[in-house]
Design a protein around this nucleic acid. Structure first.
Length: 273
DNA sequence: AGAGGGATCTTCT
DNA sequence: GAAGATCCCTCTC
């Protein structure tokens, strides 16, 4: 299986120096981002700066739907083992509410080995494998077994690395992926950001490889489209609930619901200009 | 542009 | 044993 071998090779190349994550962390504190090797930079300064800009436990401690909306416009940051930082603005999310939600992995309130992270403290990552080949990443919210699925990102920094990671999982020689194709889908963003099962149960408020920072321009209520979730098939009424949220008009969203956007406009949610 | 099928494996019945 | 919070490739209109 040449395809699989190629994937593994790419992955191990990227993670070649990650055998001792704690040592890596210490080294990273002593080096300035961007390869500046000025020897006198203070690690205390760097630590302080990081802490102040990271979204904290208070932010994640919100009811599921609120958190799903609050994520829009915020920034996911991933530090690769080689030191490169990937930045992506969150533009599409889905809320999975827990026990009562028939489409949730935590439906019926049942906790299993797979979904354990959904029951952990808000800000915990829940990463699961889907269809045997892909991964999806969620963030635990307030509420028993509730979590928010990250569906699409607008890539901001580290696009070359994202393209490499995305290309590694395809077989045929293809044209270079456009920017909008890098992170527009739950498993695509996991590929682009190098997120796999190893990130399950990690804490976004503490982890050294992945975290979130506040976005610059946060959307208002009128910029957010609320519509049905993707890929949950026949789950009765739960398939119909508006639990997917995305930024209106953003070209990095994976699935646009034109019909819903028209309905919202007709209802007067869209400001007339 | 849209429909259809294959890939591939963990989880739960 | 079957299904699954997906993606990619190919075929057809």
């Amino acid at each position: 299986m040449p395809r699989k071998r190629k994937l593994l090779a790419q992955l191990s190349a990227l993670q070649s120096n990650s055998s001792f994550p704690q040592l890596d962390a210490l080294e990273n504190l002593n080096t300035t981002p961007g390869g500046d090797s000025s020897p006198k930079s203070s690690k205390y300064f760097v630590t302080e700066k990081k802490k102040s800009s990271r979204l904290d436990a208070d932010f994640f401690h919100q009811p599921c739907v609120n958190l799903a909306k609050s994520f829009l416009g915020q920034i996911l940051v991933r530090k690769l083992p080689d030191g490169r930082e990937l930045w992506g603005r969150i533009v599409e999310t889905e809320a999975y509410l827990g026990g009562e939600d028939e489409a949730s992995h935590s439906k019926g309130g049942k906790q299993t080995q797979r979904n354990a992270a959904m029951f952990m403290k808000p800000g915990t990552l829940y990463v699961y494998q889907i269809y045997g080949i892909y991964f999806c990443v969620n963030v635990s919210s307030q509420g028993e077994g509730a979590a928010v699925l990250l569906r699409s990102l607008e890539p901001l920094q580290g696009l070359d690395a994202m393209r490499e990671l995305r290309r590694a999982s395809r077989k045929a020689p293809t044209k270079l992926l456009k920017d909008w194709q890098l992170c527009n889908g739950p498993s695509r963003l996991c590929q682009a950001f190098g997120i796999d099962k190893a990130f399950d149960q990690r804490d976004l408020t503490q982890d050294i490889d992945i975290w979130m920072v506040p976005g610059q321009d946060l959307p208002g209520e009128q910029d957010v489209v609320a519509t049905t979730r993707i890929g949950i098939g026949n789950r009765g009424e739960w398939a119909q609930k508006p639990l997917r949220f995305y930024l209106r008009g953003n070209k990095f969203v994976s699935v646009v619901d034109k019909k819903m956007e028209r309905e919202m406009a007709a209802r007067g949610h869209l400001s007339c200009s």
